[in-house]
Every structure is written in C-alpha cells, then in structure tokens.
Amino acid sequence: MAIELRDVYKAFGSKEVLRGFSAEARDGETLVILGGSGSGKSVTLKHIVGLLEPDRGEVWVDGLRVDELDREGLFELRRNVGYVFQFAALFDSMTVAENVGMGLKRLTGVSKEDRLRRVEECLARVDMAGYGERLPAELSGGQKKRVGIARAIATEPRYILYDEPTTGLDPMTRAVIDELINRMKAELGVTGIVITHDMESAFRVADRFAMIHDGKQQFQGSPDEIRSSADPMVRAFIEGRPELIEEAE
C-alpha cells in the first residue's frame, strides 16, 4: 500500500507553508523528498501520521484517508508507521532501552522477554548495542539520532518516515543508516519517505524523488529523471549551486 498527498494546503496563521503540494510513495518503495530548509518538509511528514491536519487536500495512507480518521483510527494507523524525528525526540526521562521499547509496550501480545530482545536487536542494528541503560542526555547528537531510528523500527512498521536521518552524522554512520533504510525496505517491505539534504545519501536510498519548492511540487520522478532534469531549481539543489536559480530567474 502507498502513501499519497494530494494537493495539500497548510498555513500557520498568515504563513502559507504548503500550497497544493502532492507527492506519492509507492508500495514498497522509498520516496526521497528534497527541499530547502523551512520549505515545509517536516510539516509534510507530520500530515502523514495526522500530527497536523491539512487546511485543504487529501492525505492517503494504506488506503485510508488520514485527514478524516477519528482518534481510534489514527492510533490504529500509527501502529503501522514508524517516525524518525529530525532531532530524535527521545524521551529524556527514560533510558535508551525504555525509549526503544515504548512502541512495543503499546502492542498487545508482546511478552516482556520478546520486548527486551527486540530492543537489543534494534539497538544492534543501528550500532548502539550496549547503550540500553544510558540516558539520552549522555549521548551525542548522532547517537541520539540512531536511537531514534531504532525506536521507529522496533515495532516493525510497514511505513517509516525518516526526517533527515543522516543530517549531522559522520560519513561512516551515514552509510550505515542508508544501508539500514534499504534493508528495512528489502527485508520487511517497508514503504518509506526520507527527507534529506544529503544528495549522496539520497541517491543511495531513493526509488523516486519529489522536490518541494514554494509549497508546491517542483519535481517528481525517478533517480535517472532527476539526474537528467533541466529544471534550474532541481539542478541547483542536486549540484549544490544556488547561483543556477538566479541565472534562471
């Protein structure tokens, strides 16, 4: 099943962030969303799990219209969606292991032994084995990020939303995370959306790209299509050359 945003509008007060944005992550694929900072990428992801409601437009996940789900429906949906927050958003009153186990605790029929085993497994997957008893405050930014990913994958969700999963990490860890994203897709059939500024990572994980600019979809297409795109906005972004935009305008 897929994730789809159709013509989504969202404003905060007078600030129009999304102005008819559309994007689609197809079943079992990874969609990479590109866009400048403050362009509304995180806002877009929050719509997918119903943390924000669109002013206009439709949000579809798993054949369900998210923006019309009631509370129970949302909680049901969220059990199938893992969310990796931009700044990890770990619960700072809990240990790393408790953080990772939070989602599992909410699922019925998972015994305590199973839970602890899954927590260890997930921590190992992000190279954080042995850190279970630490508190988030004792971790570096990159370590927190990895724990955030472990927490999102712990329940083996069918959808995972990654908000800048590799920003601020060293190249080695970045490669590990990219591989993890690909493995979640290959092994568990996860449909994913990845927000990133890091083009190297982007090309490693993307099946498709969408680019947001000015609240609208600037581009959507395959990795080959984005490489050969002549759109100055797209070129400026993937080549890291802002002057291309000015030349075009």
Binding site: V49, L51, R78, Y83, A89, G103
Partner: peptide
C-alpha cells in the same frame, strides 16, 4: 517534539 513522538507511538 517528544509530545509528537508520543502520539506517533499511539
């Protein structure tokens, strides 16, 4: 975003 995180974990 810890409150958002709580919500996403149902």
């Amino acid at each position: 975003e810890q409150i958002d995180a709580l919500e996403t974990m149902a």
